[in-house]
Design a protein around this nucleic acid. Structure first.
Lengths: 191, 191
DNA sequence: ATAATTATGTGACCTACATCACATCGGGGG
DNA sequence: CCCCCGATGTGATGTAGGTCACATAATTAT
């Protein structure tokens, strides 16, 4: 499926746009290709855009003072990602986004999103629901982090996104779960 | 300040409604009063409404199988709360909301919110931004939970919301931080 | 193909926080 | 006014997961 169709099917799930409206909406996106390992957003820089993943897999992550990485989000096809804190508040990025595999994305600028939301009520509706779902998912992950031990969180992740198992190196899975790669290795190799 | 003015000032921060629009918007809210300890949403029941806090302090919390409580959110004046997962997906509540102090709230039904969002573009805009901010806050808390130890999280919480210190019993602060009351006690009484 | 990274496994030991047990304090209802 | 229960403090001990160290397998670059 091409970029236009993939985005269209995704958007129409939660908003009803006419064909003309969608074409206008789509005209504000630019397609970009990245190689495995390339950085899309890096800490300290301005953040202009959010990204809709067409193919491949990205990660949004934070590096702390001890150079430990924590992964906020994996982003696979039809997922959106960015440093939303920086994007919404027009501040510098505090997280990074890069490519776990080669990837293609559609890029939408903050200014264009706001313009489109103001111009087309249904676009605003779409973005409200996208964030609603993100918010609920984030709350669930918070609860899981407080309530479940590492093993349960690992099983939960693989149940929710089985495709990650082969796609993503284990030390990144660990960084998502909030544990070390050693602990993760011990979890599935029985202590 | 009365309920109408408090909500109006809150809404106008991120949306521009005319006086008539706001009056219409406001007419869909119903005011309710609760006593300390009263339950507003309880696990297993249908969730109809979300709540805008006028006065007092609520907590949204989860109780796990071991009867341990985890607090997802405190809600103070001008904050919104509900079980959004249940509310949005029309399922039964998996979390509870009750009153830490006597409280007054404005109650808006899910159906009315959607109706208002569809009727008034600026209302949809308002709710999009409200959730945007909630999403960013939730991501920050996730990072903090993974990256910082209990002491740092405690200091962070008190810096962000100093009013909680006198308002909320310590065992609830602990339940928010994801630690036991004993550990919290040891943190600020130097081991 | 070979060298150089990068990812993963595994042991020994350490630490933050949990658990359990019991003491004390303080405020609201009878 | 007193009693009782919820909130808090504190010690002794248990444990999940972290840290460090080193070995080995799998990719990537040359």
């Amino acid at each position: 499926m091409n970029a236009r169709e993939l985005l269209k099917q995704h958007v129409l799930k939660s908003a009803s746009l006419t064909d003309e409206q969608f074409d206008y909406f789509f005209s504000h996106f630019s397609q970009q290709s990245f190689k495995k390992g390339q950085t899309i957003i890096s800490e300290g820089n301005e953040v202009e855009c959010e990204y809709f993943v067409l193919s491949g897999c990205l990660k949004a992550f934070f590096i702390n003072d001890d150079i430990k990485m924590y992964i906020l989000q994996f982003a696979m096809p039809t997922w959106w990602t960015s440093d939303y804190n920086a994007l919404y508040s027009h501040s510098r990025a505090t997280i990074n986004v890069d490519c776990i595999t080669d990837a293609e994305v559609l890029c939408l600028s903050n200014a264009d999103r706001e313009k489109l939301c103001a111009e087309i009520h249904q676009v605003e509706h779409f973005f409200r629901w996208r964030t609603n779902r993100g918010y609920v998912a984030s709350q669930k992950r918070l609860l899981s982090l407080m309530n479940n031990d590492a093993k349960k969180r690992y099983e939960e992740l693989l149940t929710l996104y089985p495709e990650l198992y082969n796609l993503v190196p284990k030390h990144l899975i660990a960084a998502y779960l909030g544990i070390t790669r050693e602990t993760l290795s011990r979890l599935y190799n029985g202590r």
